[in-house]
Design a protein around this nucleic acid. Structure first.
Lengths: 220, 220
DNA sequence: CAGACAGTATACCGTTCGGTATACTGTCTT
DNA sequence: AAGACAGTATACCGAACGGTATACTGTCTG
């Protein structure tokens, strides 16, 4: 019996036997490493990093602690890897777009975020909720560089648009905050109103509507 | 020696002696109950609810665990009391205003939030960061009713304005989210750029500017 | 003065925390 | 065949967790 076969059998037996364990995002085709990442994200997303114990993650993934520590070294290392995976994919979508004028760039930006959220809503909501975690919590330390990069990119869009929008005089910061605030707040609250099982979906029409609200205010 | 004299002496000695303990928001004129609340808020604000232990709060407040449990019954009870205190004060400011047309109502709303944040920025930032905490975390359960009330009030403003803004058809929800997102995101990020010791301050001019951005978009 | 009572401290509870020492297994390389 | 090596499990660590049993203190009320 191969190692991977063993692992799968064990996971299946575990999922069927202990019964309190719920393996949601994972399936038996995953290796242990991927299953740990998926289960950890799922638990962090729904209960928060601090409120989830290593033990709990191991139980959900059907492995034991040394296995987790073999791959990630520490709980913080596991968090870092989840963040890296999530943001790498988000940035990939983000960097590929952004040509054209302000409105087009803002649409691409908004679209990248909502598209990513649609495909990986647990990852997105977890990553973005860390945006607002306390400054002395290690989760903030981990997410801060990524956040700064997103924020910087938003500021950039407004800076490049000073021709169309006039001298910015620091307003690009406020615009960037407002824009990100609008998107994040909308997506985070959207998660509330959706059935917990499915992904969230932001239709084209809503994207346009959000952008319009940001560009022209509430007087349509 | 009276009980309160004893308490003050002990607190002073503790603050001076153990030296790692930092009593920030409290002073010796407070009773134990108030000192516990102040120290707990301070710690929750900077490290997060889950990451702070009862022991740590007691040490900061210069008391022992049974004292804390005498007043609040549990860690969750302590959180509830902090939330109640904070939001009661915020709602008081919020309910007193709100007459006039949309723009005036929105200004009052924004002003109430920023004024409260200016006077109690740790409380405000803590309360609002819970806005984005995971849904299955007990902190979200505790803050949810308060959040719903704020959100409902924002929606109300837009609903009352359907005369001026035309048929809302559900857009009032999106407007409310955008408005709250703008304010919260701005204030939360503002905390980043301020010296950690002092309070944050939102001058009249900035309030107007934020409102203008929301009402009319970015094309000034 | 006697009892009730809020407030507080000492000392302790069982549980869970993040993390690890050790040893075994299978696979891959030489 | 021999050794290296990644991966995994059993069993354990000290520390911290949230919470409490008990007893003492001072104050207030009859």
């Amino acid at each position: 019996m191969s190692r991977s076969e063993r692992a799968e059998t064990r996971a299946a037996h575990h999922a069927g036997g202990v019964s309190l364990t719920i393996i949601i995002e994972s399936n038996n085709n995953m290796g242990n490493r991927e299953r740990i990442l998926a289960c950890a994200l799922d638990l962090f997303y729904s209960k928060g990093y601090d409120a989830v114990g290593i033990q709990e993650i191991c139980q959900a993934a059907g492995i034991t602690k040394p296995t987790l520590y073999h791959y990630f070294g520490s709980k913080y290392g596991l968090l870092e890897m989840i963040l890296k995976n999530g943001f790498d994919e988000l940035f990939q979508t983000l960097e590929d777009r952004g040509g054209g004028d302000v409105e087009a760039a803002l649409y691409d930006f908004l679209s990248a975020l909502t598209d990513y959220a649609g495909a990986n809503y647990k990852a997105y909501l977890f990553l973005m909720s860390l945006y607002y975690s306390p400054r002395e919590n290690e989760t903030y330390r981990a997410v801060q560089p990524y956040i700064a990069r997103i924020h910087g990119r938003a500021v950039q869009i407004f800076e490049r648009a000073s021709g169309k929008l006039g001298n910015m005089n620091g307003r690009q910061e406020q615009f960037a905050m407002g824009f990100l605030g609008l998107i994040n707040h909308y997506l985070l609250m959207l998660g509330d109103r959706q059935p917990p099982g499915g992904g969230i979906c932001v239709p084209e029409e809503t994207k346009r509507s959000l952008l319009h609200q940001f560009l022209h205010g509430i007087y349509s």
